[in-house]
Amino acid sequence: MTGVWALVGALAVAGALAVLLKVREGRISRRTTPSADLPAPVRELLTPGVTLVQLSTTFCAPCRHAKVLLRDLADRTEGLTHAELDVTNLPDVTTRLGIMRTPTTLALASDGTEILRVGGVPKRDSLLDALRPHLP
């Protein structure tokens, strides 16, 4: 009988996680990380405009979808550049940036100040709306 309850519990947990992750997917959070705290491998990717730095790992299935979306967005938007950083073997970078999952995308100003970050595959329109005040 406990097996039935274990199954019901597992199904409930799966359902709750699915809803939670769906809600969090592509959510934009704003924070102002000082540019001095930016790890060197991320700083090297900065461009004169806004840079979308996508942090990925080898084991991340949705990173490919995020890359396609962000690359296309950058290609069509003036002043916006996309760069991908594989952090599979860079745990210090993710720890310093406080990143728990991939893909996570950082929008960085030319001086390295963090404008916003997106967890999961971004939603194109809401990301563009959030970036618009920082674009030429």
Binding site: L21, T57, C60, P91, T94, M100, R101, T102
Partner: peptide
């Protein structure tokens, strides 16, 4: 895969 960074840490 989502938890890779946590697992690694």
């Amino acid at each position: 895969c989502e938890m890779y960074l946590l697992l690694r840490r």
